[in-house]
Amino acid sequence: MSSAEAVPARFERPSLVSLAFSIFVIWFILYSLKGAGFSVSAFLEGLPRMGELLDDMFPPDVSRISSIWKALLETFQMALAGTVLGVSLSLPLGVLASRTQSPGKITYTLARLLVSFCRTVPNLVWALFFVATVGLGTFAGTLTIIVDTVGFCGRFFAEGIEEIDRGPEEALKAIGAGPLAVLCCAVFPLALPSFVNSALFSLEKAVRSSVVLGLVGAGGIGVELKVAMDMFRYSEAATIILSIFVLVIVVERLSAAIRKQLL
């Protein structure tokens, strides 16, 4: 029966350490649900209230639709301008932050650190910082989106650059072309699809986050939404939410179409 012995057991017997670790993880997840204030009863009690709120929202109130559209346009402009400026900054930063193109170890590390810092600090924190320094309004929002875009695109541009075929780059280096020419003639054209992809994702992200930024006073449609909610004008809030929904969908569709065209 030696052949039967060769079949591995269906389950491996866990070691004592991994067993203890698994128990700890499960306990911590349950403990976190408590820490998160998760309560089924509170949710059930809140259900009728949610129903009432939805009821208040419908039918949506379109009396202020023109100022809502204006705020919506402002939000989109904030997102677009912030993304374009952020992408322009990300391009050189992405080069410096890529293992393959960075001129030196120190520039590489510094660029990486800067990009990580932009990314890891949440954008609401950036928004609060800019509202406190440059004041309420869309400029604070635009600055936030620039930083957010640098955090996102800086990283993905660098990765896009690291992933390209090194052959064309070598071909130009071999004939003595300068570093800038090598970047513009070989590296960027090869990384372009990846750049466009990241930039479009970044724009979608910016549109979504620029909505939230208004909640802390950084301009755009979020301000309107906060005012409507604070003044219990739920039917107007419904119009605003639906408009945001339309904007986000339109931008996502557009960027999908551009992506398909270019890639």
């Binding site: 064309p168 071909a171 071999a174 003595g176 003639c185 070989a186």
Partner: peptide, 15 residues
Amino acid sequence: RSKVGFVSQKHNLVP
């Protein structure tokens, strides 16, 4: 290098 041409097995054109 500018006086020396280089042709490799892969054409290495920018696609």
